[in-house]
Design a protein around this nucleic acid. Structure first.
Lengths: 347, 347
DNA sequence: CTGTTAGCGCTTTCAA
DNA sequence: TTGAAAGCGCTAACAG
């Protein structure tokens, strides 16, 4: 593994008998190079196996063509969202710098932001869902001082932030309406932790769907779980006590729905004859649960893609503006809510 | 968002009335600075809010303190492995540069390696499992030319490569032995795609466990699936035809096991009375399947951690060596197989 | 203990 | 269409 120095632009220049500049022009596809010179340079590049150092380029240009991605357990948004992010970034020519944020205290956020900015990321994707006040730092001067664009995934609209999110409200409504259309009369709801924005939006959707049909929405027709299968099981038992006439239940994620299926079976309830269950997409295997689970599907890769597109758009805009004239100082706010959710109907 | 230039080391030097070098010494915690000077510099740093540019540092030092992670769908090793990687990298002060590799043709691999090396990653984690000949490029000069250490996850031992892997063979044996200990006599196996190293190792384990007890291992006591739940379902039907007296089945992953549970139920088989099923860990929810699934657990974060530890060890070694003397040219090969798997027994 | 001088490899700016 | 010079922010190597 002997370290052969990578050839630099000067090596190429020397070999091709031109200046570094000309080489630079060639690798940047500048039109202002004669064909003859270009060929000559390209030949030298090929001969030496030259590759431009991105580090040097980043350094001299002051930008890195890389995006910071801040996540927690990589899992909150599921793998599929990350795939969307990764693919889109690749497509647009950006690299991803991944950071895990253990918790959302300022003590954690500040150093992690600095780590990203010290590496000169061109923009940041904040891939941590909104849970209680974990986005409170947005109202801090810490946020205002961030010199690069940020896009947030799945948080409530915020005046200062760019947000890309699914409309969980609509998803919740859809789920509930589906149950109503199936002729169910008594629709309970097992929510996720209500300090999650996603969970509370789904709950609002459930409520709205019931209200649309003039049904009462009683507090004890709803029990809160913690997303885990075990909590779904427990929640279902409590819910059934509160609401014995319940003939359908909308569960805020698939894992809890799994617990519900188990609990219902233990109670001797037949599904779907005695009880209809609908989940909310976070597992791909829902259709193979026993019995199969109807669920609300979200196109998660699309969410990730949209986030990156939005971010890169802002980045390019920024570098454009900076180059031309620094007139555009109004805050750029994109609030993109993806309304499309698909109901996966299982016969 | 007006761009205030980040203060540089020179700004600090000017303010503190010292040379850039001294500032550099302070931020690098060199002992060769008087307390008085140090205080003065630290004060200036604080006043200016100075942070060292990692890009400039990378550029000048020729190393970036970042690791390239090459994965496919982020999913092959599951989130948990990634968590292990991310945490350990953070702990050791390295950043992660993530790359998705759509397929393993040389046409894909070469540019992606270049992308990583152009950004001067200090090392690479190859987080794509071995499937048929997708590691064939290791025997190519492409591999030999990579100037940084690489660690491979989950591949068969290879003379030129550092590998960190679980012992799927032992896992498969454990699963099978567990069924035998439960008194089962006829143990079928649903394998993953056999061109996956992991799948074929698990199959070998099944075979070995049966042979140990003097049982015959017939080819039609085994059916191959494709990891998906649907394939597990189909495979089970075929297997049951081939092997009607089967009273237990070892399924090579949990998703397929899910399909088996469904299929068994459709056949009117009671679990575990008529049929014992054991899976192999890739879902956290297995215990909530209906009925609950016994599975072989692997400590996946540990695998990721180990990979990063190994890699960073080699990196530091390399930079040491380079600095001191370049005598150490023997290939450094670590083959680490983690033998520990835990059986998750569900009552 | 501290400062000076180079230089990392590229882009930018200005001249020719 | 080409080249020369300067500089990005830091560290390394050598002096003092």
């Amino acid at each position: 593994m002997q370290q052969v120095k990578r050839p630099s632009i000067s090596d190429v220049a020397k070999l091709a008998n031109v200046s570094k500049q000309t080489v630079s022009r060639v690798i940047n596809e500048s039109p202002n190079v004669s064909d003859k010179t270009r060929q000559c340079v390209l030949q030298a590049i090929a001969d030496l196996g030259f590759r431009r150092s991105e580090v040097a380029r980043s350094f001299s240009q002051g930008r890195t063509y890389s995006l910071g991605v801040v996540g927690r357990n990589l899992i909150y948004f599921g793998t599929s969202t990350y795939i969307g992010i990764a693919r889109q970034a690749e497509t647009l020519g950006y690299s991803l710098l991944l950071k895990e944020l253990p918790d959302s205290s300022i003590d954690q956020i500040e150093p992690m932001l600095h780590a990203l900015l010290d590496r000169q990321v061109d923009g940041i994707v904040w891939a941590i869902p909104e849970i209680s006040d974990n986005h409170a730092w947005l109202d801090t001067e810490l946020f205002d001082q961030i010199p690069v664009p940020i896009v947030f995934l799945s948080m409530a609209p915020h005046p200062k932030a760019s947000v890309v999110a699914y409309d969980n409200f609509v998803g919740g409504m859809q789920a509930t309406q589906h149950l109503l259309e199936c002729g169910r009369q008594h629709i309970g709801h097992i929510t996720g932790p209500l300090d999650w924005w996603d969970a509370s939006e789904r709950r609002r959707g459930w409520e709205a769907a019931l209200q649309q049909t003039g049904r009462p929405v009683l507090p004890n027709h709803m029990v809160t779980g913690n997303w885990d299968a075990a909590s779904g099981e427990a929640a279902f038992h409590r819910l059934l006590e509160n609401y014995p006439e319940m003939d359908a239940v909308f569960v805020s994620n698939d894992k809890m729905a799994l617990g519900v299926l188990l609990a219902a079976h233990d109670k001797g309830l037949r599904i779907p004859e005695d009880l209809a269950v609908i989940g909310f997409d976070d597992i791909t295997e829902s259709a193979y649960f026993h019995p199969p689970l109807t669920t609300v599907l979200q196109n998660k890769p699309a969410l990730g893609q949209l986030a990156v597109k939005t971010l890169v758009h802002k980045i390019e805009e920024k570098f454009q503006t900076e180059t031309q004239t620094a007139l555009d100082s109004e805050p750029l706010v994109h609030q993109l809510i993806v309304r499309k959710t698909t109901l996966m109907r299982v016969p």
